[in-house]
Structure formats: structure tokens, C-alpha cells
Design a protein around this nucleic acid. Sequence first.
DNA 1: ACGTGCATGTTACTTGCGGTAACACCATCC
DNA 2: GGATGGTGTTACCGCAAGTAACATGCACGT
Lengths: 214, 214
Amino acid sequence: MDTTQRTDQQRSADRRRRELLEAADRVVLRDGPHASMNAIAAEAGITKPILYRHFGDKGGLYAALAKRHTDALLDSLRAALDAPADRRERVEATLDTYLTAIELRPQVYRFLMHPAEGSQPGDQGFDVGKHSAPLLRRMGEELAQVIEDRLDLGPGGQQLARVWGHGIVGMMHAAGDWWLGERPCSRAELVRSLADLLWGRLAAAGDRVGGPGF
Amino acid sequence: MDTTQRTDQQRSADRRRRELLEAADRVVLRDGPHASMNAIAAEAGITKPILYRHFGDKGGLYAALAKRHTDALLDSLRAALDAPADRRERVEATLDTYLTAIELRPQVYRFLMHPAEGSQPGDQGFDVGKHSAPLLRRMGEELAQVIEDRLDLGPGGQQLARVWGHGIVGMMHAAGDWWLGERPCSRAELVRSLADLLWGRLAAAGDRVGGPGF
DNA sequence: ACGTGCATGTTACTTGCGGTAACACCATCC
DNA sequence: GGATGGTGTTACCGCAAGTAACATGCACGT
């Protein structure tokens, strides 16, 4: 088997795949996650079966598309997480990076959080637990690793780090989602409020007069 | 217009609607959120158009279905939130209530977190912000209200409470989703870890030796 | 008693999408 | 020159959402 030829072919196929992904990206960003395979194929200047040859099925295409954006976002987050500053500043920088990303490209964000597209009626009866957006899971795992690596949490620290990783990511996501919809405050205020929450201000707050305390 | 007759009709329609919802519930719990309208109609012993007359479209049926479960879960959560105990115990009780609910009825949980079913290609271009599960939003708002009512957060407290409400709910949700899929620890441990996070243990933890600190 | 509404039910259809089979073109390699 | 393999097409299947048109039964007003 001719290595050069095979490499050439693979190179060509990879380039084509990237072109198709970029076309799909344009359509998804324009039409939303409901973009049909026909529409994507049309945007790419081809027809459906080619898409299916490259990506298997719609889930495959969407997974490939999601991976691109997820990787990019995770790179940004890693940079914020690795910035030279103290812990609080890093946490705020990470929150701000995430929120800035979803603020600048809400369509991408919406697409990434919609896992329902991939699954089909007949795939697997009812696997609970896999339906959350892969982006959330990956962010949770990454953050868990960072926490475990850098913090001394004593015995059971690894498990604690994983819980916290997923929990913090979920907090960031839900708050960001709500904020994006209602825009009740500036991004900086949101970041500060969330960091305050993580810094234990909930436990430290005083009871309201006359109330039984939360 | 005859009031008695109208009431009778309405009563009958309501009863029918409830029967249909219960049939839909059975199917969705059996087949997952991909249950077709035909399947639901068959389970109810009727045919599709009747479902459409009652609920408009699939989104309407699913919304009605979701409302039932969401209301039920919110009632449980309110009870936990109102229990006579100190703040930490209430937080743990609320977390535990939520986690117990999703543990006992994972199918219901999965259904509630799948908003993608409702939206259709042609409804509205791209409204970002409305795509999160209504359950999450409602839980966030409720918790925000409780926090605002019972905690003295100083100026800007209302906004802070809302951020925290949505953030905490998101934390609970993401951690619960991950936990449900991997079952890395007992429910009690998860509750404790999350409460520790909310109690500021992240900020209090020491740096690991040799690391720059999270 | 009888037609008039009106809700309830049906069959049969349209539309649109995911996915596939079968065939056509064009380069490359023996 | 003819096999091979990737790229592309048209035309189709199956299935689910949603709708139109028609049938039936029950309470009402006169």
C-alpha cells in the first residue's frame, strides 16, 4: 500500500471534512440546532449522502461540530484557570471567560447545550445519565482535575473534587443561561455574585429579622 | 348560556384531559421522551387528532405533562425548605430531596430535562435564553425567593439572591446528573460534598504542596 | 318529535426529515 | 486499457407531526 497516496487521500478527505463542518457550522449558527441535513448539504454545495458518508448520521455530524467548539472553549477556560493570580482571581477569570464566550456567541452556546438531537428513537431503551450536554460533562471533569491537582482536600479529596467540578460547572451554566435570557445585571456583577457564593457568603449571611433563617 | 351544562362539559373535558395525560405519562415513562403521538394515543385507546384537539401540538402535551411533575417536585422541595432546622440542615434536606426524586424516578427526570422536544423548526428564529428546562428555571426562581425572604444580604440582595438561586439549582442539577450516571458515591456523601462547597470549603482549602494554588 | 349545535371519535392524507440503495463520474495504479 | 476507490447524484423508504373531512352520539330550543 502506497503510503504517499494514502496520505494524500486522507489529507483530501480531512480537508473535505473540515469544509463540510464549516458549512454545517454556518447553517447551524444561522438556523439553529434544528438545521436539517438537506440544508447543511445545500450550504456545502452537495447532497445528503455525502454527509452521511463522512459522519455516519446526524448525531455524528453534530458530535464533530460540538467537539470543535467544545475544544475551543475548553482551551480558553484552561488559559484562565492557569493564569498567574490568586485563587479568587482565577475563579473569577474562569467564570468571566465562560460567560463572555456564551455572550459573544449565543448560537454556538445554544447548539452545544442541546443534546437531544443526537439520540434516536431506537438507539437504547433508556440510559439515564448520558443525556446531559457533553460540554458540561467535559468541563466538569476538567475542573475536577484542576481542583484535585491544586488543592489539598484531605482524605476523599479526589471524590470531593469531582463533585465540586461538576457542581461548579453546573452553577456557572445555569446562572449563565438565566443571565443570558434576562440580562438582569452586568457580567462583572454576575461573576462577583457567583464567586461570592463559592466563597461561602451563603453560610456567612445573617438571618433576616423575624425569619427562621434559611 | 346554561351554566350547569357548560360546567358539566368542562368537567368532562377536564377529566378526559387528565386521563389522556396519565396515558401519556405511562408511555413516556416506558418509551422515553421520544414517545410518538401515535403511541400515546394508542395507550389512551384513541387516535391522534383527539390529542391534538386537547393539547394543540406535541409541545403542548409535553408542557402539560412536565407541569404535573414539576409541580409535584417543587412541592417536595418547598417542604424541605420549610422544615424546622438550621440553615445547613435545610440545605442538605433540600439537596437530598431533589436527589432522591431523580434517583427514584430517573425517567421522569430525564423527560423534564429535555426541552428540545417542544420547539419546532419554524417557530422563532433563535431566541437564546429560553432553551433551558423550565423545571430548572422554576426551581431557580423559587429558591431565589426563599433566599431573598430569609437572608439579610444587604444592598443588592435581591439580585444576589436570584443569581444564587439559579446558580445553586444548576449546581444541584449538574452534580445530580453526573452522579446519577456514574454513581461514584452514596447520596449522603454527595449531599455533604455539595453543602461543603456552598459552605465555602473551596475558599478555605489549602494549596497543594508545590502547586500554585487554584 | 325534530333539527341544531357541539364535543368526540374516526380514516386517510400531506409534509418533511433522517437515512439508504443504486447508479454515474473521474482519478489513480497494475 | 481495465479494475479500484473516492466523490457525487437521483430516487426512494419509513416514520412521525400535524390536518382535513367525515361520522356519531348527546343535550338543547321550539
